[in-house]
């Protein structure tokens, strides 16, 4: 019997099984009959407490938590939507496109603020700004930059210090990096000047925020641009080495979002999971007990869930943007 299951499983999901996950963890109490497969780009340590609190109320469930980068996540899910039950990502644009293209199951009875959901199928549950994170040592004796403008000036003033010491996303690889970059570019010309400065300083490009923060802590780089503040703050062990700065003029803020696959095998359990996350995250007090930043209910987000998120996903727009970005950063 078991062999047949494995056989069927391997027949239907060779690409997924072949996937090298960034991280994979099975949350289970051993007696469970259903296993929810959650595809996420969020580090397991941010989600583990939420999943555990959820499983405490649902003893018959177990959860397979699979982590990969946001761009990969998008591709994997599109090729095999039946393999996953819940999709969580910080790349709002890609999540939006999944929902727009009909990959999400509408959940009509989820209670959630209107501005934080789209078509009852995509649910935003955290508000997280992109931050400039600096290595305290590298900025010793220099005024800490408060804005992008400050950063440009600080870098220009000491090119020899910051040469090869800047880190930012490789927007060609990282969905979230591309999202932050395009939103930055849309809001202000400063982005392009900053990128040119990065280029002139031979900035290092990262696929993922984890590596970037590691390098920052180790002192390999002095500045990490557009890293999620929550990720940097999550490294509690290294707070004496690094400092998180939210640019004062226009912080680019993203909302992490979740959707249930239209082809989920366990719609009820998946729905309950979404309700669980949104319940916690929309309530500041409850969310305080969990590592993820809550959904900011005080201010309407600058980047909302809407069709305009698809603008920069257009192949032609993307080509133009990447060209421009490459010519600025690779010099």
């Amino acid at each position: 019997m078991r062999y047949i299951f494995i056989l069927i499983f391997s027949l239907f999901s060779p690409p997924v099984l072949g996937q090298g996950w960034e991280d994979q963890r099975l949350f289970s109490n051993g007696t469970s009959s259903q296993t929810l497969r959650i595809l996420s780009n969020t580090d397991t340590r941010f989600f583990a407490p939420i999943i555990e609190s959820f499983l405490a109320t649902q003893p018959s469930l177990s959860i397979d938590y699979l982590v990969t980068g946001s761009a990969d996540l998008y591709d994997i899910f599109r090729t095999s939507p039946a393999e996953f039950d819940v999709v969580i990502s910080s790349a709002m644009d890609l999540q939006f496109k999944l929902a727009n293209d009909g990959y999400a199951l509408p959940l009509n009875d989820i209670v959630h603020p209107n501005w934080a959901q789209w078509r009852k199928s995509l649910f935003a549950f955290s508000t997280e700004p992109a931050a400039i994170v600096i290595n305290r040592n590298a900025f010793k004796g220099i005024l800490t930059p408060k804005s992008r403008q400050d950063l440009i000036e600080a870098l220009r003033a000491r090119p020899e210090t910051f040469k090869d010491k800047i880190g930012t996303y490789d927007v060609r690889q990282s969905g979230l990096g591309y999202f932050f970059a395009t939103q930055d570019a849309r809001s202000s010309e400063t982005y392009w000047r900053l990128t040119e400065v990065f280029g002139s300083l031979n900035a290092r490009l990262y696929c993922c925020s984890g590596d970037m923060i590691d390098d920052l802590i180790s002192g390999r780089i002095a500045v990490a641009y557009n890293v999620l503040g929550s990720y940097a703050l999550g490294r509690t062990d290294a707070q004496s080495e690094i400092k998180v700065i939210l640019p004062s003029n226009f912080p680019t803020t993203m909302m992490r979002s979740a959707l249930v696959s239209r082809e989920t095998r366990f719609p009820t359990a998946a729905r309950a999971f979404i309700q669980h996350i949104t319940d916690i995250q929309a309530d500041g007090e409850k969310a305080a007990a969990f590592p993820l930043p809550p959904l900011d209910q005080t201010a309407k987000p600058l980047i909302s869930l809407g069709p305009e998120l698809m603008t920069y996903l257009d192949i032609l727009k993307r080509r133009t943007f990447i060209q421009e970005w490459e010519s600025a950063i690779i010099q």
């Binding site: 727009n100 869930l305 069709p307 603008t311």
Partner: peptide
């Protein structure tokens, strides 16, 4: 080569109260 750097507004203007889905082709 054709280059179309269309504005953000091209899609944001299509926002509706019922969260209508949009599709396009070039």
């Amino acid at each position: 080569d054709i280059e179309i750097d269309f504005p953000y507004a091209s899609f944001s203007m299509l926002k509706t109260a019922s969260d209508d889905r949009i599709f396009y082709a070039i």
